[in-house]
């Protein structure tokens, strides 16, 4: 794709990414009362973007696919940062939070999953997309089916096989 043809897509992506980062961080800052689900996030981001007249490639489904990708990128980038921070510092750390167990192992696991998912994409691209939608974007089965243009039964089948495959890979990885 040449740049001029991709320009719209790039703008689209960067806006989606930016919005989702903001939204994700707002929800996850601990504001549980907001009861925002990932689907709500994506829909809100879509409404904002749809109102922006810059976007010519503006279909909601298309956007949602991009949003799922953006969610994955946000989380993987966050994991990478956490991991790097952990490696980079051998010092005793002062903390004001004792709920750190989860934070210890999760980043490495997420990075391993991201890598395994890249491998799965080579074996079965649609299954990898299904994982992206279900796991990283938090979409449910009907939403994922609509997004990928397949039946719900296919989503369930793909998810089940992909989940098992990824679990095996992650198990091997560590």
């Amino acid at each position: 794709m040449t740049m001029e043809n991709r320009q719209e897509l790039d703008d689209f992506y960067s806006l989606a990414y930016q919005e989702l980062r903001r939204l994700a961080s707002a929800v996850l800052r601990g504001d549980r009362a907001s009861t925002l689900s990932p689907t709500t996030l994506v829909n809100e981001a879509w409404l904002k973007l749809a109102a922006s007249r810059r976007l010519a490639v503006n279909s909601q489904l298309h956007f949602k696919r991009i949003a799922a990708r953006a969610m994955r990128q946000v989380l993987v980038e966050a994991a990478r940062r956490r991991q790097a921070a952990k490696r980079g510092s051998g010092l005793a750390l002062v903390t004001f939070d004792d709920d750190l167990d989860a934070a210890e192992s999760t980043p490495a696991a997420v990075l391993a999953l991201d890598g395994a998912l890249a491998d799965l994409a080579k074996l079965h691209p649609r299954q990898a997309e299904t994982v992206e939608c279900r796991f990283f974007a938090g979409l449910n089965v009907p939403e994922t089916a609509e997004l990928l243009g397949v039946s719900e039964a296919t989503v369930q089948r793909d998810w089940r096989a992909a989940r098992a495959w990824l679990a095996v890979e992650l198990h091997h990885a560590g």
């Binding site: 996850l28 800052r29 946000v74 989380l75 966050a78 903390t95 939070d97 999760t106 980043p107 997420v110």
Partner: peptide
């Protein structure tokens, strides 16, 4: 997951 990765209030070291 995102809560863990992106941080809760005060969980910064």
């Amino acid at each position: 997951l995102a809560g863990t990765l992106l941080g809760n209030p005060g969980s910064h070291r």
